[in-house]
Write a protein that binds this DNA or RNA. Structure first.
Length: 577
RNA sequence: GCGCUCGUAGCUCAAUGGAUAGAGCAUUUGACUACGGAUCAAAAGGUUAGGGGUUCGAGUCCCUUCGAGCGCGCCA
């Protein structure tokens, strides 16, 4: 209950109930630019009661005053808004409570759920490119936040490790020799490997035939073929891990649940759908027709679960995956951090799973969809050579650009410190640029903007944090000693900062409610802006006695929220930069 | 053709159905021996793509037109 908005809503509700003569009236407490908060509930209530909105608002205010449990002043304004300005002492007490809390006022989830976050999902023997950036970064941020509020989180990396391309990839591996291929792949030239295999497949009927035979061998469980496949998977995941390490995301080998993991459940999907009477034979394929989908001709659109030639496809695998997550793992919230183009496919999979009873009431599957990364031409981001940029190259460029800035601005830093900071800034900038806009929209990738120290960027937030750390280096005092201080909230910048700090709880809650990390980003930016105003107008080290201690306490708490908030986004907060 | 998503300041983006639609960049004007100027303050910039509707109240919800992107049977 750190956020005054939440506290006020709870305090105002009984007054609204009393005026309405019933329970459960929403006071509609919202942020306000004319007060600390405004309650809009009277406008909606007026119609129900057949009274004028102002009249209702006045009655509510009178009732609140009678109860006397709101530490602040209320007044009716406009058509019937109730503006609330809380007392400085109230803010001070709330700030002190948050400062004493390791969780910084963030409430644990009302009920802990078992959450599966399905994200990243690169393909074996294929380069990770910008297309994987968003899923990886958004998914990882959500994982961190869900864990922080106390949910049990299971990360799942649904890598593409199965399917017909593996015939040609394994044959190419054999042609190269295992050592040669290992060298090739460990260098990170996954695309080169894939393209060579593809080129041979397209050019040679003989190779094509070998590849086809190899697919059959793979699917039938031939030991040697499986070993070679496993080698490809292993070499690829080692490479993915390098990228994850560079990106500072939490995925490990333990989180890998590739498509192949569901092979054993595929026939069960078919059997169970059949037993439920949901299967229809169509052009030799086994399909399900979930209601509400049509194709080009206006005919019902099927979800194909067994191809005409008897093979299974990704829909089957996705259904087996749902069964695994619900029935074996017992998850009650499954997040698919997957690009928007797959919306229809996932929607059909979810619908079929619901029809089959595999997603029972209370178990939610959510497509956390996101838009594309665009270049300055507003088209899909391409490198200078016109190819899809490799993720590692993008990240290395980010670090290099950040490194130049650090070297220029802070040349006296030791080289290893510079390198560490450059990494936090560069990677942070890329991640923040991705996280800070509404995920459903496309966003424009722009080096200059994301690395700028002005505006809603990672470097700006990191800079605000570093400035605070600088104050403490200079002050030479133990920050933890400040956490029992009840600050003095006097200046308007102190009020603004206190209110901002107290909003952390709601920011995290809002973010999780909509799976939208940009809400936390916006919050952190507003917090940093509030701090900057405070920093300009309220001298800290130059102040004396209790004022100095009070302001130091506000600095400490601000820095902690910034650091924690950035951490929840998967971004580091250096003490110097 | 059908479906989904998007359309907000010159640019990049915000805005759980609430008052006068907010930021940053760029532009213009101020503040420089500064607790980190990698800063701050101010000005200017809008028919929220167009049109209807619901509502006490719409950028937000519904309908429609236009524009953009992406999907639409055996690839994943």
């Amino acid at each position: 209950m750190a956020d005054p908005l939440v506290t006020l809503a709870a305090l105002l509700q009984p007054a609204f109930d009393a005026v309405a003569g019933r329970s459960g009236v929403d006071p509609v407490v919202r942020p306000s630019d004319r007060a600390d908060a405004q309650a809009n509930g009277a406008l909606a209530l007026a119609k129900e009661l057949g009274r004028s909105p102002r009249d209702v608002a006045e009655a509510v205010v009178a009732e609140v005053r009678r109860r006397g449990d709101v530490r602040g002043t209320l007044e009716v304004a406009g058509p019937g808004f109730v503006n609330i300005v809380v007392d400085g002492s109230f803010l001070a007490d709330e700030v002190a409570r948050v400062a004493a809390d390791d969780r910084l006022g963030v409430r644990p989830a009302a009920r802990a759920r078992k959450v599966i976050v399905d994200y990243s999902a690169p393909n074996v023997a294929k380069e990770m490119h910008v297309g994987h950036l968003r899923s990886t970064v958004i998914g990882d941020a959500l994982v961190r936040m869900f864990e922080f509020v106390g949910h049990q989180v299971i990360r799942e990396n649904h890598i593409g490790d199965w399917g017909t391309p593996f015939g040609m990839l394994i044959e190419h591996l054999i042609d190269l020799g295992e050592d040669e291929a290992a060298e090739h792949l460990s260098l990170g030239d996954l695309d080169g490997f894939y393209k060579e295999a593809r080129a041979k497949f397209d050019a040679s009927d003989d190779f094509k035939e070998r590849a086809r035979a190899r697919v059959v061998a793979l699917q039938s469980g031939d030991a040697e073929t499986r070993r070679l496949w496993q080698l490809l998977v292993q070499l690829s995941t080692e490479y993915f891990n390098l990228v994850y390490s560079l990106l500072d995301v939490r995925l490990t080998d333990a989180d890998i649940m590739g498509e192949s993991a569901y092979n054993d459940g595929l026939s069960a999907v078919l059997d169970r759908l059949g037993a439920l009477g949901l299967l229809t034979e169509s052009d030799g394929a086994e399909v399900v027709f979930p209601p509400g989908y049509t194709n080009r001709d206006g005919d019902p659109l099927p979800l194909i679960v067994q191809k005409g030639k008897g093979g299974f496809n990704y829909a089957t695998s996705d259904l087996a995956c749902v069964i695994d997550r619900v029935e074996r793992i017992g998850s009650d919230l499954i997040l698919y951090v997957v690009g928007a183009p797959q919306a229809q496919h996932l929607s059909m999979v979810f619908d079929v799973a619901r029809l089959a009873g595999w997603l029972p009431e209370g178990t939610d599957a959510v497509h956390v969809s996101f838009g594309s990364v665009l270049g300055s031409d507003r088209k899909m981001l391409k490198s200078r050579s016109g190819e899809t940029p490799k993720l590692v190259e993008l990240l290395e460029e980010a670090i290099a650009r950040a490194g130049e800035a650090v070297a220029e601005k802070n040349p006296e830093l030791a080289d290893d410190a510079k390198a560490a900071i450059a990494r936090m800034l560069g990677i942070g900038a890329v991640k923040y640029a991705d996280l800070s806009t509404d995920r459903v929209r496309d966003y424009v990738f722009d080096w200059e903007r994301m690395l700028s120290f002005d505006g809603n960027t990672a470097p700006y937030l990191q800079y605000a944090h570093a400035r605070i750390c600088s104050i403490f280096r200079r002050a030479g005092i133990d920050r933890s000693s400040l956490r029992a201080v009840v600050p003095q909230i006097v200046e308007k910048e102190e009020r603004a900062l206190a209110l901002a700090v107290l909003g952390f709880d709601s920011a995290v809650a809002d973010t999780l409610e909509r799976y939208s990390p940009h809400r936390l980003c916006t919050y952190l930016y507003e917090l940093a802006t509030a701090f900057t105003g405070f920093y300009e107008h309220c001298p800290v080290l130059k102040a004396d006695g209790e004022v100095r201690e009070s302001r130091l306490a506000l600095c400490d708490l601000t820095a902690r929220v910034l650091e924690r908030g950035l951490d929840l986004l998967g971004i580091g907060a250096p003490e110097q930069m």
